[in-house]
Amino acid sequence: MSQVVVNRHPRGTLSRQAELTLGAVGLAGLILLWQVASVASLLSERVVPAPTDVAGALGRLSVTADFWGAVWATVSITVIAMVVILLIAVPTAMAIHASRFVEHSTWFLIEFLKPIPGVALIPLALLLWGPTDGVKLFLIVFGSLWPMLTQLVYGLREIPGLALEMARVYRFGFWQRIHRITIPSVLPFTLTGLRISVTIALIIAIVTEYIVGMSGLGSLLALAQLNGVVDQAFALLLVSGLLGLGFSGSVAALSGPLLFWHPSQRERRNG
């Protein structure tokens, strides 16, 4: 076997410093451009407010209890959904991995349910059970379970055969095998699943809130739209984005310490 050193992109890389500076310049430039366009009335105020107006609206929002209540509602349900998803996906993936019979029997069901957009179930779920937090949780879990499940099944399948043979040669016990081989090799896949699942969960949470009018960022958005307060809609857009950043940032922050041995992380440290 030839040793393949995956030596990624040393050419065409900037120093961290330069990257951050350029990023700040890009962001500042964009906001400045937007502000200038607004002031020069190139953008209709009723459609796209100036950045300063958006900042003002954000300031006004941030002192209301409603706003923080909505943020909490969206964040908490998303976090709970992630926990539920893990509780469902881990045993399911293990069952699928352990038994060919389970794998084949559930194959079509999973392949069929996977691509069904979670939001499509909103009307039916509302009809059957009404607008409760339980329904919201069900919708989020149903819609964003699949990436996690797929990644877990995939991860279990990809456990290096060599490592398993090593475990047999050295007579690893059950827990030792789980702890030293299974969990470390499945972890990267779990985090990938988590990253995709949380993105979709947040989308479904906001859509459900928006359509049903349940407490959360989605209903605030609907309200802003109804009242025609554009600057507020933009402020909420900003908040939603930051929330998304917070979630993906959290997954990334988990990856650092959990995957310190993984090439992607080593590269990050060195690069």
């Binding site: 350029l22 890009g26 993105t199 947040l202 989308i203 960022l217 958005l221 998304g244």
Partner: peptide
């Protein structure tokens, strides 16, 4: 590098927030 912050924001943005 210039567009990185903007891209990162939009990637994480739950797109239905754009509806209004």
């Amino acid at each position: 590098a210039l567009f990185a912050p903007v891209l990162t924001f939009f990637r994480s943005l739950p797109s239905p927030a754009l509806i209004p």
